[in-house]
Simulated scan of single mutants.
Amino acid sequence: MKLTLCVPLIWMLFSSAGALKCVQEYHWSTLQILKDPEPCNSTDVHCATVSYLDSKIIGEELYLIRRTCVPSSLCNQGDQLFSFSYDDTGRSVFLHCCSTDGCNDKSIPRLAADEPKPNGLQCDTCSLSDLSCNKKKQCVGNEDRCIAVNLNEYDETHPLHGCASANLCEADTELKLKLLFGRSINIDDMEFSAPKCCETSLCNSAPADKLSVISLLLGLVALSVC
């Protein structure tokens, strides 16, 4: 009986001892808290330092730093820059990964606050207060895709349509979106639908808009036949 109880305990101790430890905090860039590294989940095998640049949320840029544990799927392409913008809000994220205990206590380059230039792509967009998604947005910088994705939070679904960088539409998009918008990638407080990305202007139009256009065309055909 004692042996039966001891085996799980020994396994837990060895598992905890072998887990990667990373600094885990979220703060304004002007602060340098740097807590002691904490053990990661068994699925997280990299430490990450993430810098955020938010624009036009309260009329000024907000610069944040997150240090956390992440799975290997987010770190298979080296340093990465993700961008997503909708309505009049934009967010850029720079992700740096490393794989030794406490290695994410280093500083990383601050994202430039310079206003990026329009790149010629235009996408449909909507905001959390206007769900019609019938506005148009000019994409800028590396946002070379139109994107349509639904956010489910606290049993409410919100469409997020706008402009995105191409790497946001690749593998593990939900984890990247959680990294962009969520309070933690390990907490299921946000769920995202599979995003639909496309490369031509206004290709992310809301389904309702497309349906109305099709109905109009069918009506015209019916009138011409009659």
Results as ranks from 00 to 15, higher is better:
Thr89Ile: 15
Ala206Phe: 02
Cys103Val: 04
His46Ser: 13
Val93Phe: 06
Gly78Ala: 04
Asn119Met: 08
His27Ala: 08
Ala208Glu: 13
Ala164Gly: 02
Leu31Ala: 11
Lys56Gly: 04
Ser29Gln: 12
Cys133Ile: 03
Leu175Gln: 09
Ser15Pro: 02
Lys2Val: 13
Glu191Gly: 08
Leu64Phe: 14
Asp114Lys: 07
Thr49Gly: 03
Met1Arg: 05
Thr157Tyr: 05
Ala113Thr: 14
Asn76Arg: 08
Cys169Trp: 11
Asp101Thr: 00
Ile187Gln: 13
Leu128Arg: 10
Pro8Val: 03
Ser224Gly: 03
Leu31Ser: 10
Phe192Val: 06
His158Gly: 05
Asp209Ile: 15
Tyr52Cys: 09
Ser132His: 11
Pro8Cys: 03
Thr49Pro: 04
Lys178Leu: 15
Cys22Pro: 00
Lys178Val: 09
Met190Tyr: 09
Leu218Trp: 01
Ala194Val: 14
Cys97Val: 10
Arg145Val: 07
Ser42Asp: 04
Phe192Lys: 00
Asp155Met: 14
Cys197Ile: 02
Tyr26Lys: 08
Asn104Ala: 09
Gln32Trp: 07
Asp144His: 10
Thr157Ser: 06
Leu81Gln: 11
Ser29Asp: 12
Gln77Lys: 14
Asn167Val: 05
Pro109Ser: 12
Gly141Lys: 01
Tyr154Ser: 15
Lys56Met: 13
Glu153Phe: 15
Leu64Ala: 09
Ser184Tyr: 05
Glu191Thr: 12
Thr43Ser: 12
His27Ile: 12
Ser212His: 11
Leu81Glu: 14
Leu179Met: 15
Cys75Asp: 02
Gly18Ser: 15
Asp172Val: 11
